[in-house]
Design a protein around this nucleic acid. Structure first.
Lengths: 138, 138
DNA sequence: ACCGTTGTAACCATTGTAGTTACTTCTTGA
DNA sequence: TCAAGAAGTAACTACAATGGTTACAACGGT
């Protein structure tokens, strides 16, 4: 059973570090905190940057939050690191036999339900902000 | 972005076929309906059998539901095909640096939230039965 | 005993992920 | 201005899950 990429938990970790750290953080510092390779961090930072969550400065180095910790939800992070394409958490077996009446109709009925289930999860992620996570252990 | 295995949607498809089909179905028939290899079906049938959802008879062949379609939820199927270990949808990056105060504390706070999000999805799956899916397109 | 079916083992190709090395590009400060 | 440090990125490896396939053993009615 394949899990959702750890990019997600690493990204949350990094954002919390940026929020609580008094000075700007370099990729190497973040990598040391998370205990992984700096390139992994840079790849994730690139995703967070593209999503508008952080500012990263090349050359001198250092990253900082671009939004208030109270304005960043777990869903924002989840989407930013492309854990899963929108609405595509569940994989369908395509090409059902067109002569099978169940196969012809199951897809839309099941897809609707699974989309609902996925949305339920994402709504929950949208309720939690980085800010709330920080106050949870401070 | 890795998706949840199509075993899940195939299993639902098979259960609906068993529920609506007047006679017992062989693995080859099911495979033809789903349009995949018979071995794939047998593997999934083995999981559904182990979970007590279907009866499968070796030799003469043929499978049948072991519970009423109204008593089988999508969550039962989801668990049966081991899409994901219980409570393990999200993958954590382990071994955070023990000298990092964020790393030391993030895991429990984040893990609690992600477990909640996962539970929200599973509760939604638990609300839908095979029976309901069938009535959706009949 | 035969034949169709299930139950598996073994294998392959593909894909996503995590990690690593190496190199380029950029920015600032000496 | 140029050296140093840091981000950006390409290329590669290793590993695991998945979907599919072939082959064969075990089973059970007719």
């Amino acid at each position: 059973m394949k899990q959702i990429s750890s990019r997600f938990s690493i990204a949350v970790h990094v954002l919390i570090l940026l929020a609580v750290s008094p000075k700007e953080c370099t990729g190497d510092f973040l990598a040391a905190s998370v205990n992984t390779n700096p390139v992994i961090i840079r790849r994730i930072m690139g995703m967070l940057k593209k999503a508008g969550l952080v500012d990263v400065r090349a050359g001198v180095g250092g990253a900082s939050l671009r939004k208030e910790p109270s304005q960043i939800t777990l869903l924002d992070v989840y989407r930013a690191v492309q854990v899963i394409e929108e609405g595509q958490l569940f994989n369908f077996h395509d090409n059902p036999n067109p002569n099978c009446p169940v196969g012809r109709n199951i897809e839309s009925a099941l897809r609707a339900e699974l989309t609902e289930a996925q949305s339920a999860m994402e709504r929950r992620l949208a309720q939690v902000t980085v800010d709330q996570l920080i106050s949870r252990f401070q």
